[in-house]
Design a protein around this nucleic acid. Structure first.
Lengths: 394, 394
DNA sequence: CGGAATATGCTCGTGGTACGAGGATAAAAG
DNA sequence: CTTTTATCCTCGTACCACGAGCATATTCCG
């Protein structure tokens, strides 16, 4: 039963891979659903699921009574000894280390606040947590995937101003380890998760935007993130939608960032530049909600600037919908009319009859974790990934 | 030898399709090249090429002496009775109707100037030319693909202000015809061509930008155009990079369009808004090249505005390179320092050490034709397209 | 309560595709 | 003219999916 090596490159396991991808994307799917969706005959479904079960990739849950006629179909779920991804989420204040299985289920989750934001200290702690996960699960951990609140290029953090980092190499694995390490921006990964499993599920082209300190996000087309040549795509906050005279810490001028976040609101309120723009924004939003007219005006201006930029991005990128997250949700809640007015004014006329809806993202604070897991499974659910799993686990 | 219907959905002809796509993308490739690139055994290559030859999809040219050692390998080329695409290019002033074969070779080309720019008149003439192509080649014509100088959404022209069109349905085929009709923006399709076969060949992420009246273009990732939910993506000229007080004919304000084209230069020269911004721009560029200081200043400002916007787009989209076309080439030639200064100033600091190069596109005026043919072959080189070809031609 | 209707799962024979080894072929190099 | 290099062809083998036929599990309905 020894299989030849080269064969794998062409079509071997292609059907199994398609099934596996479908199971991952639709965790509740029954075997019959999968067969229908993929156009498989029931014979093929039988054979493929048998192979996937033998390879410890999927398991079949007891069929649950659906109330429908016909023979009940077992649901395909992650195998209890199947592949896992270790996800690390590095925020400005907090960290998370999660273990995610096929289908997106979270098998384990730890979190905490940074005791010391220094890169060395943060990474030392996270290395320990990752090592613990790998000790516990052994070779089931197929990848480590990091979501970090900073600009990422080619696997390293170029800048994470919230933590005072610049040019940090995220060495989270012992040197020499062959486990792949993936790194992405947290807002972009959150957008990937929203597009696939959140508010964007079903839409083909999703523009995700989040406001925290500045604006981040991602365009997701057919479930694939448009993250550029080096993974640094999605830095929409550094498009020059603002006042060309205003310098941005990024080095450019007139960045959109400076018009919509806590820095913008503080400026509009006549306050000095805030040390922590996130809480400054929250303060302004609370004051505006409480009826303070000058806060109201500042929030309105930020909302309008947000809407105007979204309009420009929609003109250029033509999404089916826009998913809003972070402070953008609060801006939309506090100043919906201004956001909408800015959005419509920014759109080309022909788009105004039926503009892509601005929708609130639904996945919550774990969305970067989910997105990082998605990115990792994208790598694992390939022929190479499968081959490697079969070699170790088969 | 009757083949079952369902089989085709899974992996039938998958290998042949991969070969066909490779041949299309690499017209000069020998059979050995293809086998190597796709990891095919020589036996498989033999079988697949035999099948493709029998299906009148590819032919093998006489092996040419290469001067290298070893048995010469025949080149795989388009079959002389293989599938064709009828391409229609509708510019502001001119039209073209081309017949393109697999691999991108142009088998026939007609062109002319619009006698009357009215949509009805233009379409009537083009319908005639398309009908002539279809009469001549019969069922070999598998698709009609249109590149039009206007905003396209979902297969119809929303607006083509250069010709005074709005909401034009491009009915170029007799009603009831089953031949697929594809429609795209000319600048976006030109960018697709440049990314695949022009200056962007080899790059994974290409941002193509062209200046004519306003700015158009496309982002191409892994050879796939990022053209949005309705095909209207790439309207980069309507991002608000300019003065927010300035109204754009598109309905929005502050569009980049208004800062870089002939309208911008006329404005900077204190002239009234030109009826034909294209020739106004050419006039200003000529005057600047001739040494006129005020024209020089106007061109410099437009070049700087172009560079600044390109910087913002690079920040957000992270391409490997930027391909410039149309008047952008002239701006780059006339005011290279200003363009570059604007570009670098618009980039985030971490990008400035190795910014994506701004390169001049290479395909020339036929690039929209090539791009439209590419878009059509993308549809034809699928299982459905192949199946349909085999049904009629097999 | 029991047969009909419905939906799904399993078995097995068949066909299509790719592999890989071995030999044949066509050019350049020595 | 022989050797080297690179390619092409033939053929036996393996794998995967199909589809028909039958088995199984549930709901519906008289």
């Amino acid at each position: 039963m020894q299989q030849t090596a080269h064969r794998a490159r062409s079509q071997r396991w292609q059907g199994a891979l398609a099934v596996l991808r479908h199971v991952h994307a639709h965790p509740a799917a029954t075997r019959a659903d999968v067969a229908r969706a993929l156009g498989l005959s029931s014979g093929s479904a039988t054979e493929i699921t048998a192979r996937l079960k033998a390879a410890r990739l999927v398991a079949e849950a007891d069929p649950r009574p659906t109330g429908e006629r016909g023979r009940p179909s077992p649901a395909l779920v992650a195998h209890p000894r199947g592949p896992l991804v270790c996800v690390v989420d590095i925020g400005h204040e907090h960290w998370r280390v999660a273990t995610v299985e096929l289908g997106g289920g979270i098998a384990g989750l730890e979190s905490g606040r940074h005791a010391d934001r220094d890169a060395g200290a943060v990474l030392a702690r996270l290395r320990g947590r990752v090592a613990a996960v790998r000790r516990r699960y052994g070779p089931r951990v197929r990848a480590v995937s990091v979501a970090v609140a900073g600009t990422v290029r080619g696997g390293t953090v170029v800048q994470a101003s919230g933590m005072g980092w610049s040019e940090v190499d995220l060495q989270l694995l012992p040197s020499g380890s062959r486990t792949p390490l993936l790194v992405g921006n947290d807002a972009s990964l959150a957008g990937l998760a929203e597009a696939r499993r959140g508010v964007g599920a079903g839409a083909r082209v999703v523009l995700h935007l989040t406001v925290e300190v500045g604006v981040g996000g991602i365009l997701v087309v057919d479930g694939r993130p448009v993250d550029g040549a080096t993974g640094a795509g999605g830095e929409f906050g550094h498009m020059p939608f603002g006042d060309p005279a205003r310098a941005c810490p990024c080095g450019a001028h007139g960045c959109w960032d400076l018009e919509v976040d806590g820095r913008a609101m503080a400026r509009l309120l006549g306050q000095p530049p805030p040390r922590d723009p996130r809480t400054a924004a929250e303060r302004a939003l609370r004051a505006a909600a409480g009826g303070d007219p000058s806060a109201r005006a500042a929030v309105a201006a930020a909302a309008r600037a947000l809407g105007r930029g979204v309009g420009g991005l929609v003109n250029a990128l033509d999404p089916d919908m826009v998913s809003l997250s972070g402070l953008a949700i609060d801006l939309a809640a506090t100043a919906p009319d201004e956001l909408n007015a800015g959005y419509l004014a920014g759109l080309m006329r022909f788009r105004r009859a039926a503009p892509p809806p601005l929708l609130t993202s639904t996945l919550g604070p774990l969305s970067p974790v989910t997105g990082a897991a998605e990115a990792a499974f994208d790598v694992l659910l390939t022929e190479e990934g499968l081959e490697s799993w079969l070699a170790t686990a088969g």
